[in-house]
Design a protein around this nucleic acid. Structure first.
Lengths: 223, 223
DNA sequence: TTTTGTGAAGTTTTTCACAGCG
DNA sequence: CGCTGTGAAAAACTTCACAAAA
């Protein structure tokens, strides 16, 4: 038997996250009752047809001639995305207790979504043994042991670029990690059963500048 | 006369940034002389043909039967991307001197690339007037004035989600900002001549968890 | 022989056009 | 009507297959 090919693509999932966040505000703050695909599109910079196509992947949620019930749509999408219920199922560890790591430890959006970082690792022995925002800092050499003991499944890497690959190797070695959120500006090499999501701040800035420059000085790189 | 349609797309530029970073290491650290598209692809998780197609957009840089000169390719790509020379041309301002903002102020990759944040804004009057990492903190009410005076062209938003849109409005109002790097988990509404790049940490984490879950429990959302 | 460069084919994603329902 | 849902068309992006050069 042949497997059905049509999987929901990455771009769609990325937009679903955005719809969800927008609807959350509509539901709790603005107390809106119904919303049209046109209005969602306007708020998020998308064409109405794109919005409708995305939403239609998960069943007929809207009412023709009316629009979408904000409540219904919001809870429907919440059911598709992992948060907040599944965020607790997936334990998270943070590597690197530098400034960025510390910032993430009390990131408003994490606590709001039920994301909980259960362990923090650092190479600096001065930091090890201390507590940061209620989390104990382990030495990085204890990573494999602690990750296995706590059954952590997601790692956030916030160490300098030069150390990131060796941290990734330990993570892989633990055998329990299924996904990595990488803030270090390097491409990590990991077995392909581990998902890696890169949050590269300087790359994003470079991209932004590239496109600004392109606009300014009439598309300099058209072929 | 009709304009040639083929512009270099967003995915290509994203990869060019990655090639560039990889080549930087190859050139300065590993002192490699030549590299093949196959090896680049392996390091970055891409097919060799993808690498070659990307590189070919900018001219014939490789030598057939040999590969690419690391030095030549690296400097060639550096010429395409804004960094580091253009990073100085585009002045940057930071909105929000919270933990994340502070982390960005001394982000290793920024200083390395010549990215310089020329002004910091915060709403909290306790912080205003102080200096953080050598940068003076202005009150957010002074934004329009300072942005114009200093001719800042890029804004980084690190304020809470609830304040992000009002900060964006001020930014737009200043008339000098051309691009926004937004860390707040909201979709900003701005005129379309201003480019917005979103770095949504919690969205990225949700996406990651979604795909992990999909893998674990046999593609639950295939249609 | 090796490895690039590239038109053409294949795949994915977006947009269109309009049918379908309230 | 008005707005959704959706197959079909278009556009964008990736991969293939092979010619061409070192």
């Amino acid at each position: 038997m042949r497997r059905k090919k049509t999987q929901i693509g990455v771009p769609t999932i990325e937009r679903i996250v955005r719809y969800c966040r927008y609807l959350e505000r509509l539901y709790y703050v603005e107390k809106r009752d119904v919303i049209s695909s046109a209005e969602i599109g306007e708020a998020l910079g998308l064409k109405p047809t794109q919005v409708r196509k995305d939403l239609s992947y998960f069943g007929e949620i809207g009412k023709r001639g009316v629009g979408y019930s904000v409540e219904e749509l919001y809870f429907h999408l919440m059911g598709i995305l992992p948060c907040p219920k599944d965020c607790r199922l997936f334990k998270i560890a943070l590597f690197g207790a530098g400034r960025l790591g510390k910032a993430l430890l009390d990131y408003e959006m994490f606590s709001k979504r039920g994301v909980d970082i259960v362990a923090v690792f650092d190479r600096n022995r001065q930091k090890v043994g201390k507590t940061i925002n209620g989390r104990y800092i382990y030495h990085i050499d204890e990573a494999e042991t602690v990750l296995r003991a706590q059954n952590v499944s997601i790692a956030i890497i916030c160490v300098p670029a030069s150390e990131a690959q060796s941290v990734a190797d330990r993570i892989v070695n633990s055998g329990v990690i299924k996904g990595i959120l990488n803030f270090a500006p390097v491409d990590l090499t990991v077995p392909k059963d581990i998902l890696v999501s890169n949050m590269d701040i300087s790359a994003e800035l470079e991209k932004l500048i590239y496109f600004i420059r392109e606009r300014e000085y009439g598309q300099p790189l058209s072929v």
